[in-house]
Design a protein around this nucleic acid. Structure first.
Lengths: 230, 230
DNA sequence: TTGCAATTCAAACAGTTGTATGAAACTATC
DNA sequence: GATAGTTTCATACAACTGTTTGAATTGCAA
């Protein structure tokens, strides 16, 4: 039972190192040194390096997805089962952007880790991302309710572009800052979320006006994963 | 002088293998086996594995950038030094999308390689991508001419979103196909280009109407690089 | 042909990696 | 306090990596 100390020490150290130096540069020996733990502990507790990375990523992904669905549910309840399109998109891109952007705060290690996971795509993470389809379908369903007339393909493109803008902003935030010489404020997360939502809504409607929103959820520490495949 | 045979055999084999199996899975031994060449030849001709990857990527990037600037120049000449915003964005995203999407054709190895480079970000490629800023500034300048009143930050965001949509479409084309169950046609490249341009223009103007276009340039084989740093 | 440089080759090097092993140290239960 | 199960530990393993070496071969000019 005291093994949880070792387990979480490994998880924390691994997340910190991966966040700072990327997956390619960090070895198991780096991790166990940072965690003050024996080398064999990783394989004992996680089975393999890839499973460790997967667990790290699944935990954070689950948290984001939970946030998303929560925000979506709230919006649908407020609209009597039918959320407006901008609220749906807000629920989709808000949690990710809020999680990965913004000034350093408590959960910044998790945030930086997720940015890494987005930039350096490694096999175990790619495998998990491929299972995200079911999750996204829930948003397509909500969008279908919000825009009953629309062709399904249009909805898919709209969701795709919304994710494109939010992920690309996360991936390339340094480059955009440098390119714009600081004129694009990457710290005002709410403004970015609204901007992405606004453009996505335009992509879906062909040109109208959006609205605003902005809740938050606490950062989740790493617990033990049981039967959660994302 | 006959060494060019070895050199280009290595380049071709490496591009093919990287395109098919990704950077993480392909070793120098795989490459020289595929190229029917001695192991030491890679270091002899390129210096190191990273320099080989860099040369591969620089060649393809240069081709794309040339296409982009060419299309931009054409559009500006046609408009008497001032190209319309949709033509500028078309010149920006068209070559990349055309190069990486669409049905298999002659240059599909190069295309698949560039998709890999976009998905699996490795150090030598990342280093080169960071130098792309100067190239993009030329498009910002053109956009400034096309929309004199606009705030600079708005132009940067518009360009950023245009790249976001085109790159994300390339990166996630399989996922979008699967998510939409084939309802999003990823083979009609021109339609995709127009769609990305249209949304980008809306992002920049706040909602209006775009236009159409669609030239093409030949695929460039791998020659010897001299003083081209992208 | 001779001489010289460029290229190819087989072999080995040096380092790192994730993983496995088996003994030791712990912990909790009876 | 003996026992059984879990966890830790030092160490070794085996495989693979990119790179280097120095000798052989080739191509070309004089």
């Amino acid at each position: 039972m005291s093994s949880d100390r070792t387990r979480s020490a490994i998880l924390a150290a691994a997340e910190r190192l991966y966040a700072d130096r990327g997956f390619g540069d960090v070895t198991l020996r780096d991790i166990v040194a940072e965690a003050n733990v024996n080398l064999a502990a990783v394989n004992y507790h996680f089975g393999s390096k890839d499973e460790l990375i997967a667990e790290l990523f699944v935990t954070r992904s689950l948290a984001t997805n939970r946030e998303r669905l929560n925000e979506l549910k709230l919006a649908e309840e407020k609209g009597g089962g039918r959320a407006p399109i901008d609220a749906i998109l807000h629920a989709l891109v808000g949690p990710t952007l809020r999680g990965c952007l913004g000034p350093d705060r408590e959960g910044s290690t998790a945030a930086r880790f997720m940015i890494r996971a987005s930039i350096e795509s490694v096999p175990p993470i790619r495998r998990i991302k491929n299972r995200e389809v079911d999750h996204l379908r829930k948003f397509i369903a909500a969008m279908r309710r919000a825009m009953p007339g629309r062709d399904d393909a249009e909805l898919y493109w709209g969701l795709h572009f919304a994710l494109a803008m939010s992920h690309h902003t996360i991936r390339e935030k340094e480059r955009l800052t440098r390119l714009s010489e600081g004129q694009c404020d990457l710290n005002d997360v709410d403004a970015i979320v609204n901007r992405v939502v606004a453009v996505s809504v335009m992509a879906l409607t062909g040109g109208e006006t959006p609205a605003k929103r902005a809740p938050t959820l606490p950062v989740v520490p790493h617990g033990r994963l049981t039967r959660q495949d994302l």
